[in-house]
Simulated assay, not measured.
Amino acid sequence: MPNTARWAATLTLTATAVCGPLTASATAAPGQAPASLYAPSALVLTTGHGQDAAAATPERAVTLTCAPTASGTHPAAAESCAELRGLNGDLEGLAARNGVFCTKQYDPVVITVAGVWQGKRVAYERTFANECVKNSYGMTLFAF
């Protein structure tokens, strides 16, 4: 194939890949925002017993997608997305609820969160003293 034909084919494929989603978003129904305007927010949350994520075997994993609507395998997807929005996606800001009392038994539980929140990469890991302490943080995000 001559070079000009290769360049023409490459340019056509590139234009289709770049402009294709734009034409789809331009044809969204009136009053409905096109899905391409939302920054991706999709996370995978895992929990397991151990000192840290490297030593712990994940015992449970759930998915959580928050844009454009809440979905995934998380049992409380809508509430968890609302909780994350309230924190502006900053998982370090998640605090223990007042009035929750846990034993001092040491049976470490590790939570990991990986994915994308509003277009930014997320990698979070936290070890809690036990399951009760883990469940006291936030309302629904870690309750899976």
Rank of each mutant, 00 (worst) to 15 (best):
A33F: 03
A143S: 14
A24W: 04
G93D: 06
C81T: 07
A39W: 06
A129N: 03
A76V: 06
H74C: 07
T27S: 10
G115W: 07
N130I: 07
V44H: 02
Y137T: 07
A82S: 09
A33L: 05
P30S: 04
L87M: 11
A29I: 09
W117A: 12
G72A: 05
G115Q: 04
S71C: 04
P68K: 06
V110L: 09
S71F: 11
C102L: 12
D52P: 02
P108L: 09
G93L: 12
D90P: 00
Y124F: 14
E92R: 09
A78I: 03
Y124C: 08
A123E: 06
A95R: 09
L87D: 12
E131K: 08
K104F: 01
G119Y: 15
P40S: 12
E131G: 00
V44N: 08
G48L: 02
N88Q: 14
A82E: 09
Q51H: 03
Q51N: 02
F142Q: 01
V110W: 10
M139C: 03
A35D: 06
A77K: 11
N88H: 15
N135L: 11
L43T: 06
A42T: 09
V18L: 11
G99I: 05
G20I: 05
Y124A: 08
S136P: 07
T27H: 02
G119K: 11
K120S: 11
A55C: 00
Q51V: 04
T27M: 05
Q32T: 03
S41M: 12
V109S: 01
V100T: 11
A95E: 13
A39K: 10
H74Q: 07
A56C: 01
L141K: 12
L45I: 13
A96H: 02
T57P: 03
H49C: 01
F144Y: 12
Y124H: 11
S136R: 12
A78E: 11
T127V: 07
R126P: 06
A96W: 05
A123T: 05
V100Y: 04
P21S: 09
V62S: 00
A24V: 11
P58R: 08
T23I: 08
K104I: 01
L91H: 03
V44K: 07
G138V: 07
N130V: 00
